[in-house]
Design a protein around this nucleic acid. Structure first.
Lengths: 202, 202
DNA sequence: CGTCTATTTGAATGTACTCAAAAGCGGTGG
DNA sequence: CCACCGCTTTTGAGTACATTCAAATAGACG
């Protein structure tokens, strides 16, 4: 009995489905995706990218959860992004510029990701220019998300940001600890605990 | 005596130069840019986009300075972005989704911009797919900028953010009031004044 | 010169952080 | 099964960061 009736393995099938929702792909385009992306299993607490290294891969999350964060001068972590199923993660700046990264990418859960190198991604863009459009649209969507987050950060209190996080990402609550959420919101775990206590009372 | 020896007017020439620095353009590509972008003069304090409206144009700044901001429930403005020469500005989310915007775009100085409608931009992408690559790269650069800003917002104090602003955008200081800078940094004008006093003393 | 806006100053208050300690919650091994 | 370990969350007290409100001062512009 076959687990996977498609001609692609299930990791690649997930990615192809994700890309097809942005723009339908033909068989050639699906084939090159399968050729250029490499699956990788990551254990909880394992790093796929480290500060000081040049970011070598663009990463698509098939299963699991990862975080990308900065470590400040006081050794405190600040979460820039979480990535779960169908999200992309990686230091885009370092990836394209080739300069050393200031970010870490670490698995929060055991995860399965698909990786593509810069050389292969550029080959993808060259041989199938349509992917420029696919990725342009993806990047535009990401910009809109970042704009919302910046406006939140400069205009609202920690409590308001937490309430918005609850509304926007309810499915993340079971998977991510409050320490991680606090680091994403830009408050301390202690203060997030106080926010939660206050909200529970009212 | 001709002011402008190029076959393009000077506004379009500025845009073509900007785009060519991302990816060289041939004559056909330059011609379609001239065809699809429309110059417009904007006076200080004039709006080119208003909350509640659908964003109809992508805007390239040839000369001058504009700001994009949100107004919160207490009628306070929060600056998401400044745009000077060679910057783009507009509510990307509303532009692509067709949903009403929550942002304003207003000129801080008398300005000259080039506008393109959604229909014409999509025509540009269709007829000259290369522009998908040009704009993909532009969006990626913008994402990197936004990532830096988010990390700053969640990891540093108002004073640190102001110092970083001074380093990063020294050329903006003569053009933008402290009220506007405070709104961009996410602090009150009163507090920015205190920061500046403290820095001047030390 | 007067008007409008931007900036500064001061005092009181609210938001958020630090430090330290206690309480809760899985896991793991004896 | 329980004792222990490591990690997360909570609590409390004191402090720092940032805001509000009100008023004074300083610049910019017609």
């Amino acid at each position: 009995m076959y687990k996977n009736p498609s001609k692609f393995n299930s990791e690649i099938a997930t990615l192809i489905k994700h890309l097809s929702e942005i723009l339908p792909l033909n068989d050639n385009e699906k084939a090159i995706i399968e050729e250029l992306f490499v699956p990788r299993r990551i254990k909880r607490r394992q790093f796929i990218h480290h500060e000081g290294d040049v970011c070598k891969y663009a990463n698509f999350v098939v299963q699991g959860c990862l975080k990308m964060y900065m470590v400040d001068k006081d050794a405190k972590e600040h979460n820039l992004q979480f990535a779960i199923e169908n999200n992309w993660i990686g230091d885009l700046g370092s990836f394209h510029s080739g300069e050393p990264s200031k970010l870490y990418v670490e698995a929060i859960e055991n995860s399965i990701i698909l990786q593509i190198t810069k050389e292969n991604l550029y080959r993808l863009y060259d041989e199938f220019p349509k992917f420029n459009k696919v990725f342009r649209i993806m990047k535009e969507n990401q910009i809109v998300e970042y704009q919302k987050r910046i406006l939140q950060n400069i205009s609202s209190t920690g409590e308001e940001r937490y309430l918005d996080f609850l509304n926007r990402y309810p499915h993340l609550l079971n998977r991510i600890s409050n320490v991680q959420i606090a680091s994403y919101l830009g408050v301390t775990p202690v203060f997030l605990s106080m926010i939660r206590k206050k909200l529970a009372q009212s």
